[in-house]
Every structure is written in structure tokens, then in C-alpha cells.
Amino acid sequence: MLIHAPAHSNQQPHLHPKLSWRPESGERHRGARTNCIGASDLPNNDTSLGEQTMNHSQEKTRARLDSEADFHDARINTPDEHRLGYVYRSVADVYAFCTPPDEVMCGSILELGCFRGDEALALRDRGFSGRYAGIDISPASIEHCQHLGLPAGMTFSVDDANVMETVEDASVNYAFGNGVLHHLDLPRFAPVLARKLATRGRARFIEPAQGNLPLRLFRRLTPALRTPDEHPFDNDSIALLRRHFQVIVRHKALLRPILPMLAFNSHAAVRLASKLDERLLRLRFLQDQAWLLQIELAPRAV
């Protein structure tokens, strides 16, 4: 979990996906793990090839969910903002893109990947009076959020963002998430979100792109900071979203975070890198080198 450094926070963006257990159960339900072969594992002439393929797919999905949940359960009590906050400090303005705007402060807000509940706390402090739902794949995250003492109109559930079974159709005025989509099964997720958004609803996300060579090298050298199944957003991912939404993409952070870090993230270095990023990323041939994508989604016109 759902990457998080919005303008009102110095915390690191959190990266986490949302996946699939029923929230009312209060715990994850997993199949037994064993190295033994039972009768159910033996070939069955009555089982069709299609059923076998489906079972294999379900097992892979379950394994992926378990892996994601375990990763983010372990992170909930890790002060990772101190570990990577220095890297994200120069792009706090980029992450502010997802902050819910004033016009939805009385509406219905859905956060994909609520993690420690930082955004919910910020909404409360802004006087939020609508309905907020935070979902996350991590049971530890949801338990943490449920003990924050937030108003009754702000709820948290373990849920799968590829399914969103706790969210009513056509009920969401504003959905958002930081570093969530690149963990998800986009062909499943996109039509579900399109169904959950209200007629004039919209969604905003910050996602990591492939980035330039130094950033790709950083990813290769730090595999423990990511889950095995996540993948940077690319043009194919954007094309898939366009099948279901009107999509606006803004490319951000070309020289950031590296240039400011070389100058100890001084205000002058951050300002200079931000201005250079804005100018350089107007050039299409450089956009594929950007680190971050601001993605805005709206329902397609009927």
C-alpha cells in the first residue's frame, strides 16, 4: 500500500493495492497451505480443462492477495516516512493533486488504499461533513484506521479494489488513491470503478511511471520496497483506462527527486527543479521519462 506525501503532510506516499476479503468477517480467509498432495489434487476425469484453468487462476489470485496483504500488514507499524521521506520531499506538490477539492466536502468520497488513515484525518480537520469510505487490502491497516476515533460518517473496510463489494453503484462523487492502480488488475478494476462513480463523479490518482534510467536503476536495487506483482504505469495501462473513462494524464517529476536531493532538498533546488520539470515535460519525447503521473478519470459521455 495503496504510495503518500500530499501538501498537508511531510509523510512519504504510501503504495498499496486493495484486494479481496469480506469486511464483515473481520479477518482474512485463506486456504490451507500444505505441501502434501490430497485427493482433490489428483487428476479427475470429470473435471474439465476449463475448470482446471479457472481453479489455477483463482489460486494465483489468492496467492497474490495474500502477498500484497502480508506486505502492507508488515508496513503499518514501520516508520517508512523516515526511510524514504527524503526522496519524496521535493514532490509534495505533485501528490497534493489527489487532495479532495472543497466542492466534495459534503459529498461521498472513496479512498482506495487508506493505509494509516492520514487522508481521513486531514478531511476531518478540514470540516468534512459528507460520507467517506476508506478501503484497503491490509486488515492491519483497517484495524489501525478503525481506532482513530473518526466520526461515524467515516468508515473503513477490508475490500478488493478490483471488486469494491462494500461500495454501492453510482454512489461515489470523488474517488482517489496514491500509488494504488499499479498494484491492481486493471481489466477488472476499470469497469468496476466506472460503475461505482456517480454520473458527475470523478477520480484522481498518482501513479509511478517507468521513469528515467536512474529511477529504473533505483527500483532494481531496492526490490524490498515493492511487492512482487506491482508494475509501473505505462501507455498500455492508460489505453485500458480510456476504454472506460475520459482520461487526463499529466506527466510530473523529470529532474525531481534526483536534482533536489543532490542539493539536500533545499528550497531553491526544489523550486528550480519544479520549474525545469514544467518546461521540459511539455516536450512529448521527454514525457516517457517522467517519474510520476497525475491521472484524472471521469465517466464517458453516454
Rank of each mutant, 00 (worst) to 15 (best):
P23I: 04
R250K: 13
R116W: 04
R256T: 02
P79L: 09
V91G: 01
D80R: 11
L293K: 11
Q246M: 09
P139K: 04
P232W: 04
W291S: 14
L121P: 03
P228Q: 08
E51Y: 04
G38F: 05
D185H: 08
D125H: 12
P223L: 01
R195I: 06
G149D: 04
S48M: 04
L49C: 09
A161R: 08
R216E: 03
P101Y: 00
Q146G: 10
A74T: 11
L213Q: 15
N162V: 10
D136F: 02
P208A: 11
A120H: 04
R250I: 11
G201H: 07
I258S: 09
D66G: 07
D73T: 09
L112H: 03
R188L: 10
L84E: 11
S67M: 11
A63I: 10
A152F: 07
K60V: 15
L262V: 07
E111H: 05
S274P: 07
N235Y: 07
P299C: 08
A120Y: 05
V163F: 08
Q146H: 09
R243D: 08
P257G: 00
V91A: 05
A290N: 09
N265S: 02
A175F: 00
T53G: 08
N10L: 10
A39N: 10
I37C: 08
A92T: 15
A273G: 02
F71P: 06
G149P: 03
I37R: 12
R75Y: 04
R83V: 13
T155E: 13
A39E: 12
S48I: 03
D118P: 08
C36H: 10
Q146P: 06
P208M: 09
K60R: 13
E230F: 05
R64V: 12
I76D: 01
S141L: 01
V247L: 01
L283T: 12
I238Q: 06
D185S: 09
R284V: 15
E278G: 11
L241T: 02
R89E: 11
V163P: 06
A198L: 09
F285P: 13
S90L: 00
L259T: 09
P151L: 02
V158P: 00
I3G: 15
